[in-house]
């Protein structure tokens, strides 16, 4: 029972991290049908920039906020200066641009912060929380809280704000959205900023657990991308649920079966998914018209 609870808690922590990374993929895929291979770098920047601002002597709250804002700005720049410049580009061209951007961001982090691992203390002290005999790092609660915050925020954004509704309209029909006066280029920037900010927020809360490193983004992005695929690739909520499913599967598979192939669980799930439910849990099957 204690084992089960322990795996459950660690699964939720992992899952929340994957969900926070995956949301960004879904948001960008939803708006531009491209896979953003720089998404993991936004997460890395969240942690790295916080470390950077802390060394400048800023208090944690400001450092964290600064990191999220910095990431959002980088997201906007990436969209504006690179992706929007490649006019009439195919989706594949855009994907390669994001790959290039990912390399640049990794390179920039390497230039500024070197090749070492960095971290900072957990927000509420290093003492583990005890839950019916199972232990979890107090920082995990911050990760889960961030995920809850993001979930509520996204719901509010799409359901209540004009901007969110405009994003939705752009997703369902870009041409029609332009016709009814939606500024589509601005929507695309907003989506990149949002993805970057959410990714960076993930990076801020997970760094005390995972540490950060200039190449940390790649493995995280892979898992986040899997989470988004499980969720159907176009649904931010799907990505969150997908992340939790992956995290829990990994934790239980690693705990009860074998830790050797724990890392492979997510990818096995993806393959099973493609065979049995290719549209993902929350995706809609595309209807083909001749």
């Amino acid at each position: 029972m204690v084992d089960f609870l322990q795996f459950l808690l660690s699964g939720i922590t992992r899952g929340s991290i994957y969900g926070l990374v995956g949301v960004g993929f879904a948001l960008i895929f939803r708006s531009s049908h491209a896979i953003n291979f720089a998404q993991g770098e936004f997460v890395m920047i969240g942690g790295m920039a916080t470390v950077f601002f802390l060394t400048l002597g800023l208090p944690l709250v400001l450092a964290a906020a600064g990191a999220v804002v910095a990431a959002a700005l980088i997201g906007a720049l990436l969209q504006r200066l690179a992706i929007a410049q490649a006019k009439n580009a195919s989706v594949l061209t855009i994907i390669i641009i994001t790959i290039g951007a990912g390399m640049m961001l990794r390179g920039a982090a390497e230039i500024v912060m070197g090749r070492n691992f960095h971290s900072y203390p957990a927000f509420s002290g290093e003492l583990p929380v005890d839950l019916l005999g199972a232990k979890m790092q107090s920082q995990s609660l911050w990760v889960v809280a961030a995920l809850v915050l993001v979930t509520i925020g996204i719901h509010f954004f799409f359901a209540r704000t004009r901007l969110g509704k405009a994003v939705e309209a752009t997703f369902s029909n870009r041409f029609a959205a332009t016709v009814i006066g939606i500024n589509v280029p601005r929507i695309l920037i907003v989506c990149f900023m949002l993805s970057a900010a959410i990714g960076a927020l993930g990076g801020v809360v997970m760094t005390p657990i995972t540490l950060t490193h200039f190449e940390l983004g790649v493995p995280l992005a892979l898992k986040g991308f899997c989470a988004a695929i499980v969720g159907g690739l176009t649904s931010p909520f799907g990505a969150i649920i997908g992340g939790l499913i992956l995290g829990l599967s990994e934790a239980f598979a690693g705990g009860y079966i074998s830790p050797t192939y724990q890392e492979a669980v997510a990818f096995v799930i993806i393959i099973a998914m493609l065979i049995f439910r290719p549209q993902g849990l929350f995706g809609r099957r595309a209807v083909e018209r001749v």
Binding site: A82, N88, I97, I99, G100, M103, R106, G107, E110, I111
Partner: peptide
């Protein structure tokens, strides 16, 4: 040296922008 990754990424992006 340290600027290698950064420059490689930059060149990749420039090629895609000017020769999609």
């Amino acid at each position: 040296d340290h600027y290698r990754h950064f420059l490689t990424g930059l060149i990749l992006i420039l090629i895609m922008i000017f020769m999609p």
